[in-house]
Nucleic acid binder design. Structure first.
Length: 259
DNA sequence: ATGACAATCAGAGATTGA
């Protein structure tokens, strides 16, 4: 089963680029972030016509996550538990039914800039809630993964120019520590486990020719529970599509599972 | 030190992002 995560930076603006990639890459499941649309305005039938079941958790203008799946999805849940006051649409879960069922969590972790400030506080508080949910996934022992835009540069080798990120919310010690604390529950980060070498990125800023200079960062990750890591076959980044017409500033990260 | 770029909503320019 091929499962991908892709921050598309707006479903309306990305409809052609996303469609082209889906047709070429043929993922069984695509976890999308930053759909920037409500559930009502998401072009649901467009993806149903491509053979996907569509589950969204959107809001107007900002954020928003979705799952597209060619295989049946069950037990869909929207919103990260732990704060009933939180109105930002950043989390969706579902179980995909294959040879072996896998629990899928799609996430759009808060950016956190400027740092320090209330947005950074929100990021760390959100990560505390993520830790709680992640721990439950480990305890459940069902194969599960958490995929999305983590807005975390885990290590220096995940940035072309780590020095410019030193004080940024994506690279601050507190951010990375909160991410490591989740990893240390027993998760396997799929891409690093397949490709330990430095120099792979999943985001290039639109500004200052970042793509042409390969001035990127790796902030889109897929974390696997031990039972899910047993099934991991491969993990890749489709970096080439960043060079196309009207691209997102992120590119897809995908893995294949033996399930 | 600043801005560079793109998307959204709205129908200009502020806000957000990373």
């Amino acid at each position: 089963m091929k499962i991908a995560t892709f921050n598309i930076n707006g479903i309306k603006a990305r409809l052609p680029a996303l469609t082209d990639w889906l047709v070429e890459a043929q993922p069984d499941v695509a976890l999308l972030q930053e759909i920037k649309s409500t559930d009502e305005t998401f072009p649901r039938t467009h993806f149903e016509d491509l053979g996907y079941q569509v589950e969204t958790h959107g809001q107007k203008s900002f954020n928003g996550v979705a799952i597209l799946s060619k295989l049946p999805l069950e037990d869909i849940s929207r919103g990260l538990p732990g704060d009933d006051e939180d109105v930002q649409a950043r989390w969706i879960e579902a179980t995909v039914v294959g040879k072996q069922a896998v629990r899928l969590c799609g996430l759009y972790l808060p950016n956190g800039n400027p740092c320090p400030g209330p947005k950074y506080d929100y990021k760390l508080a959100w990560m505390e809630r993520l830790y709680t949910r992640a721990k439950d996934l480990i305890v459940d022992e069902m194969p599960a993964l958490m995929a999305g835009d983590y807005n975390i540069i885990p290590q220096i080798e995940d940035a072309a120019r780590p020095e410019v990120w030193r004080e940024d919310a994506l690279f601050r010690p507190e951010s990375r520590a909160a991410y490591r604390r989740i990893l240390n529950l027993g998760f396997t980060e799929a891409f690093r486990s397949c490709h330990p070498a430095p120099g792979f990125y999943s985001f290039w800023d639109y500004q200052a020719g970042a793509w042409n200079r390969n001035d990127g960062i790796r902030i889109d990750h897929i974390l696997l529970t031990p039972a899910c890591a047993d099934l991991l076959q491969d993990c890749q980044i489709d970096a080439d599509i960043r060079a196309r017409e009207k691209p997102s500033d992120h590119v897809p990260v995908w893995l294949s599972l033996n399930n």
